[in-house]
Design a protein around this nucleic acid. Structure first.
Lengths: 197, 197
DNA sequence: GCATTACTGGAGTCGCTGCTCTAATAATTG
DNA sequence: CAATTATTAGAGCAGCGACTCCAGTAATGC
């Protein structure tokens, strides 16, 4: 036998491609991003590209999976907090911080543009589910503690919190003067107003 | 000479194509929508298509222009109202109603997916500007009347109102159980809470 | 009726892009 | 070092889709 796989090297290379793709997708959209351009950006040949990912779509899905995993991991950070409302606002804050990566809005739009592909829709469903799993228990706790309105179901409140961060992301994508950094405080305030009993 | 153009017939045909395109764009995204499919849906041949629109992109821009014109026309409806806050909430309500067209969310995503094209970006800028022109005077009046918070600039408030309807639209696009009809009341309530002094 | 022009369909073209294939190179094991 | 296999680049292929072209038809003015 000879030469076993070095998983570290392999994974590193994978991440280089993913990072390049994230940039190009954000700049040109999914269809506008050619594999050739991604390869150039990653400093590899097309042979290498397809050695790591079977299709361009698989690459997109890998990026989405990475994001979803991150959301899942985030749960651990809050696990021993005792102030439900505070946790909810911190999660919202975190969403604003994520929007600060200048590639994020463009990437989100790019994904939306190919959401009609069933694989993409499924990946987004998984992501939404992860977000929900993160928020829902804290919403319920906040309601029980009387820190939050109870005229909406926990599911509805979760959706609306998601709506706020999503809309926030979208606005930073479109409007020059609307910056994640500058409007973060208003986002948290708006979430507070929304949650208030 | 012979046969002058019949503008009515011409315009009607144009609208048929536009309507078909709106549907197909919403279903498949911009790049996913082939001109062949749009032609099939509109019941025309490709020759006819390119007789009416020089390129596929021009067709998309025509749809966007139509929407922007609609926003501009909306201004007239509110012109002699005297309750600024009520007008703002009505505009928000109108946004919720627009989101009720089942093709709207998909179409919005499709447009977002090709926003990197300068022509599309410009068209969206124009649309945002029209929305701003509609909202801004009423925000200023509401502030002066003391019906609305004044810790944010009128421009910021306008952006945030836009954010709410935009996010609302996005959520109806993604989440099955989040319907424009069902969540409309919460949208108006959230806008109220946001605007409150 | 006839000349002229608008409109229409659809077959075909041309460029582009995702992906395949091959041959070379590097790494690893014994 | 030899054998084996992972990795790499990049030339080229195959398919697809926007758009062109043209021939035929309908409408209009005289």
């Amino acid at each position: 036998m000879a030469r076993t796989v070095d998983p570290v090297r392999h994974e590193a290379r994978r991440l280089v491609i993913i990072d390049a793709a994230l940039t190009v997708f954000a700049e040109r959209g999914y269809d506008g991003a050619t594999t050739a351009e991604i390869c150039r950006r990653a400093g590899i040949g097309s042979g290498t590209f397809f050695h790591y990912f079977p299709t361009k779509l698989a690459l997109l899905l890998a990026i989405l999976a990475l994001g979803t995993a991150e959301v899942r991991d985030a749960a651990a950070v809050y696990s021993d907090r005792t102030d439900p409302l505070g946790v909810l606002l911190d999660i919202v804050r975190q969403g604003a911080d994520d929007a600060a990566d200048p590639r994020m809005p463009g990437f989100v739009r790019a994904v939306g543009g190919v959401m009609h592909l069933p694989e993409v829709a499924a990946a987004l469903d998984a992501d939404t589910q992860a977000q929900r799993d993160l928020l829902l228990p804290w919403v319920e706790r906040a309601q029980r503690a009387g820190e939050t309105r109870t005229d909406l179901t926990p599911e509805q409140i979760t959706s609306w919190l998601y709506l706020l961060t999503d809309g926030f992301l979208g606005r930073t994508a479109v409007e020059e003067s609307f910056t994640a950094r500058g409007e973060k405080a208003t986002l948290v305030d708006t979430a507070s107003r929304f949650l208030a009993p």
